[in-house]
Design a protein around this nucleic acid. Structure first.
Length: 371
RNA sequence: GGCGACGUGGCCGAGUGGUUAGGCAGAGGCCUGCAAAGCCUCGUACAGCGGUUCGAAUCCGCUCGUCGCCUCCA
């Protein structure tokens, strides 16, 4: 398995957002993205190609399409000729005759044609030389070129959100297939993360940043939240759904807080494989985790959670010595049947953000950080 | 207007012709000095209306609703 994540670091919005310093903004924004997503602790893809470092491959691919009659150059732009590709629309099911009216472009042979290369316009400070003049790659070709560079002419899976099916993926497919590549064998389109039932939108203000979510709920709760719904379906981010995910995370943590013997038996890999082989059914996998929990199978549970970046649920944090001291005093008070003093100390511990639970053993208590 | 996804018990969410999903919340009980944690018990739901079938949440049709997309954002 080789996992590649394309990064688009040149487009109209970047030019608009940072006139005169678009390259710097693209670099910064890429870094922000990587920093934010690193907070999930899931590691990195095998490759994260940048569009701006794939220009020569992009130009070659466009050149091929022009030579093959699938694209044409006009005034420094190059457009894909949709009429030359007979299965255009097969991926999205879009009907050409029903596409909403757009402002017609005088340069295009057909309004449905889309740009592969755009001539540099005034105010655009990032551009490259090409057979058609200075310019920049179009909106979809860079993904075709990056995928081929990293994975070859044909590969198994192409992922992306449902909102990208049309036009982006339809166009990627058209470009690569028209150029004679096999391209993606299987397309996987995930449902959208929604905020109170709607797509998150900066203009509406219904946005929660990754940093905020990780700060408010922690990485484990966030990852568990994503596991609760099948990847194909939309998933709603809300206080309620996150609180439920956190409660589940806490349930797993409590399980590992109980000392138990692990007899060295291997994890029940086949059981989890069965759930994941069924279209990567993570809710089913999560149900299995709860089954393992009920069964007391710490080995399997530790292994399974680890696969989803949730190994932290099996690790408890040690209490500060000041709180241990309070807990010791409370244990002594309980020994002396001084319940008032014991309860007072319990409240004091709670005020510090911790919880004291009475258990069998020595010491006769467990200190748990409250989330 | 078109294309697509989705609509399951209080909430989240699997399941796709007949058999327990699971979790969260809630109720009762056990345990506990009291709690917490844990354990036990308790829910017959599938947008609506028709149809197919011995039998449908699951298949077909229509309707309603939510969300996404409709090419120079990727």
């Amino acid at each position: 398995m080789r996992f590649v994540h394309n990064i688009t670091d040149v487009n109209d919005k970047i030019y608009e957002a940072a006139p005169g310093r678009s390259a710097a903004l693209a670099r910064d924004a890429t870094a922000w993205y990587l920093e934010d997503t690193a907070g999930f602790g899931l590691g990195l893809p095998d490759a994260q190609p940048l569009a701006t470092e794939t220009i020569s491959e992009i130009v070659s691919l466009i050149d091929e399409l022009v030579a093959g009659g699938h694209a044409y150059a006009v005034d420094g732009d190059v457009y894909f000729r949709i009429g030359s590709f007979d299965t255009y629309g097969a991926l999205s099911g879009q009907r050409h005759d029903q596409v909403e009216e757009q402002e017609p472009s005088p340069l295009k042979e057909d309004p449905r044609d889309f740009a592969l290369w755009k001539a540099t316009k005034e105010g655009e400070d990032t551009s490259w030389e090409s057979p058609w003049g200075r310019g920049r790659p179009g909106w979809h070709i860079e993904c075709s070129a990056m995928a081929e560079k990293e994975l070859g002419a044909e590969f198994w899976l192409h992922g992306g959100g449902l909102d990208l099916v049309f036009p982006h993926h339809e166009n990627e497919r058209a470009q690569s297939l028209a150029a004679g590549r096999g391209f993606a064998r299987i397309w996987m389109h995930n449902g959208m993360l929604r905020f109170t039932g709607e797509k998150m939108s900066k203009s509406v203000g219904n946005v929660a940043t990754i940093q905020e979510v990780l700060g408010d709920w922690g990485a484990e709760t966030a990852l568990l939240f994503f596991m609760t719904a099948h990847w194909r379906k939309p998933i709603d981010f809300s206080e309620e759904t996150m609180a439920a995910a956190r409660a589940q995370a806490e349930t797993f943590r409590n399980f590992f807080r109980e000392a138990r013997d692990e007899d060295g038996a291997p994890p029940a890999r086949e059981e989890l494989a069965e759930a994941l082989d069924d279209d990567f059914n993570t809710p089913d996998a999560l149900a299995l985790f709860h089954e393992w929990r009920g069964r007391g199978d710490a080995t399997s549970l530790r292994w399974g959670l680890g696969l989803f970046g949730l190994a932290g649920l099996a690790v408890d944090s040690a209490a500060p010595t000041g709180l241990v001291d309070l807990a010791e005093r409370r244990a002594a008070a309980r020994e002396a049947r001084d319940w008032d003093e014991a309860d007072r100390l319990r409240d004091e511990i709670a005020a510090a953000g911790w919880e004291v639970r009475d258990i069998e053993g020595s010491p006769p208590y467990r200190l748990v950080r409250r989330l």
